[in-house]
């Protein structure tokens, strides 16, 4: 790309453009430059404002939720009953929602993390370049499919399959169907981020291992994967973050029953699914159910933020090592 001809062409263009600029006074040019720099800075500050506003909104609404007489912070963080809508006595203990989220996420992770890593090892260490050039676009297509489509897939294909072939106890809404669909959704994320990490490992390490007489598996499992471990962990953490924040799949396929269960055939409600229930329902704005969804959103935001930050730390550690 950086050949002499191109540089000289660019220089000619730059000279022409600069001459146009020089025609104006130097002061005017500096003034324009300042205005442009200010505008660009304002764009960059947008992202800070966004984060700040999210924090303020979530905290303000959560505070006013906890200030309500029917709610206690202690019950919210330790309670195991989530019954915000039904009955005389409302209960706001967030653990059933967290349990639902964890169940679905664990199923997704149990499927996608190992499979994604193996696909990544195959793409990076084993696959001939022709196979790679076919598989990469397929993974890109999988990554580009909207999540609502995976939700439909869970309802229309996965759950009927589970009901017919695994156990009659799988109802229309169940954690396993939703979890597997979420797993399919995050699979391409794990595969492509892990593959990037594996490919960034220097050739010399592989060559050394091959020279010692290692098989391709020895080289991959004992040299390349350990060398890329922080990058792989980063891809896992970022994928888990996506799984926890995933909304449409669980809203369609996991159901709306907040309860503590480990049975994958059960209907569960995740934090995101509860928020969907509130925002699509008739819960009056500024009422207690409505405000409870902001408290749930705050918990969700804190969890995903912590995981994203951890993932980025691992990613940075990996980059500092090899790039």
């Amino acid at each position: 790309m950086s050949n002499a001809a191109e540089i000289s062409a660019a220089a000619v263009r730059a000279a022409a453009a600069n001459r146009r600029g020089i025609a104006r006074s130097r002061a005017a040019r500096i003034g324009t430059e300042r205005i442009i720099r200010g505008t660009l800075l304002a764009c960059a500050l947008m992202s800070i404002v966004t984060t700040f506003t999210i924090l303020v909104i979530l905290l303000a609404q959560s505070v006013s939720f906890f200030a309500m007489p029917q709610v206690s912070i202690w019950e919210f963080f330790t309670g195991t009953t989530w019954a915000p809508l039904l009955g005389e006595e409302k209960h706001f203990g967030i653990w059933p929602l967290i349990a639902g989220t964890l169940l679905v996420t664990s199923i997704a992770a149990a499927f996608a993390l190992p499979v994604g890593l193996i696909v990544a090892v195959y793409l990076s260490e084993y696959a001939p370049s022709r196979v790679r050039s076919i598989l990469k676009p397929i993974l890109e297509v999988l990554a580009g499919i909207p999540t609502v489509v995976y939700g439909f897939f869970a309802l229309a294909v996965i759950t009927p399959f589970l009901h017919d072939h695994i156990s009659e106890s799988f109802g229309t809404f169940n954690a396993l169907g939703a979890g597997l669909a979420v797993g399919i959704m995050i699979l391409p994320i794990v595969a492509s981020l892990s593959e990037d990490a594996l490919r960034a490992v220097p050739r010399s390490l592989r060559d050394a291992a091959f020279a010692m007489g290692g098989t391709r598996f020895d080289v991959s499992a004992k040299v390349v994967v350990p060398a890329a471990l922080s990058g792989i962990v980063a891809s896992w953490l970022l994928a888990i973050t996506r799984a926890i924040g995933e909304t449409m799949i669980v809203a369609l396929a996991a159901g709306g029953l907040a309860r503590m269960t480990l049975n994958p055939a059960d209907e569960v409600q995740t934090m995101t699914a509860y928020m969907v229930q509130i925002f699509t329902g008739d819960a009056p704005a500024y009422g207690i159910e409505y405000k409870s969804s902001f408290a749930v959103a705050t918990v969700l935001f804190v969890i995903t933020l912590a995981l994203t930050m951890a993932g980025n730390l691992f990613l940075r550690a990996f980059r500092e090592e090899y790039e």
Binding site: S47, I48, R242, T247, F279, F294, F301, L305, L307, T308
Partner: peptide, 22 residues
């Protein structure tokens, strides 16, 4: 700081952006 902030924003669930938009 801005760079870190953008990396973190990329991990925020889209439903939370919905709350911000609302």
């Amino acid at each position: 700081f801005i760079q870190l902030n953008i990396a973190n924003l990329a991990g925020v669930p889209s439903i939370v952006y919905g709350i911000l938009g609302l």
